[in-house]
């Protein structure tokens, strides 16, 4: 059995998890400082990929980065960079689809922090950067980790948008999700079942990890409130 889909899925999910981790935390932390009306509007836009069908995300992506779209054409012309139908095309799709999960969990984790910590820290002369890295991040750790694991799981399970921007090229762009679909179409149930089993094991482990993290996070918060 060719394990390329597993490896490809894992590398795509890993890279897009790193991206969503950084972007999600950046957005969640930055949005608290904006005026209320802008906050509301931005929050809707940033959460949209969570409720949109992934095919809509895929459609927008193709209309932006495919060689037929202006931006995609420009990149192809100037840098000979083709952003669709390659293995890394899936990173765009999975990052966008997983982003809202990271952003919303991170925002929740930051909002649960005691605002008096930052106020006190500021009067002690501590910089914004110190407050973010040494006070906010460590105390939001459990929530941020849970969000990261959830984003990883979502990225791993992404199908719709990925299929649209990468297609299915065995050994080049195939992921577990697109492979299962292809095998079903070919009537190769035996192999499809194997990939389904692999996917189940990974997803199950991820959910157990999330539960454990959330339980530990709850304990830490109760401790800090005492």
């Amino acid at each position: 059995m060719d394990l390329f889909p597993l490896i490809n899925s894992l590398r795509v999910a890993a890279i897009s998890t790193v991206l969503t981790f950084l972007l999600g935390i950046w957005a969640a932390n930055g949005i608290t400082r904006l005026p209320a009306w802008l906050k509301g509007a931005l929050d809707c836009i940033l959460t949209l990929p969570l409720v949109l069908p992934p095919t809509v995300v895929g459609f927008f992506l193709l209309k932006t980065i495919s060689p037929k779209a202006p931006l995609g054409a420009l990149l192809l012309e100037s840098f000979e960079l083709k952003l669709t139908m390659t293995w890394y095309s899936a990173i765009f799709a999975t990052t966008i689809v997983a982003f809202p999960l990271m952003y919303r969990t991170a925002r929740g984790a930051f909002e649960q922090l005691n605002p008096e910590w930052a106020a006190c820290a500021q009067t002690m002369g501590l910089s914004r950067r110190f407050i973010f890295w040494r006070i906010k991040m460590p105390n939001a750790k459990a929530g941020l980790l849970a969000g990261t694991v959830l984003s990883f799981a979502r990225a791993l399970g992404e199908y719709g948008a990925t299929a649209m921007v990468t297609g299915y090229i065995p050994g080049r762009t195939a992921t577990i999700a697109t492979t299962v679909y292809q095998l079903w179409r070919e009537g190769n149930d035996a192999l499809a079942f194997r990939w389904v089993a692999i996917d189940l094991v990974i997803s199950f482990s991820v959910l157990v990890a999330v539960n454990l993290l959330e339980k530990r996070g709850g304990g830490a918060r109760a401790g800090s409130a005492a």
Binding site: N114, E116, W117, A119, C120, Q122, T123, M124, G125, P138
Partner: peptide
Amino acid sequence: IPPQERDVGLLFQNYALFPNM
């Protein structure tokens, strides 16, 4: 003047000690 430079000490009802430290 930003709070960092005001030379003011602030003590809250629940003390706002940093729980990770």
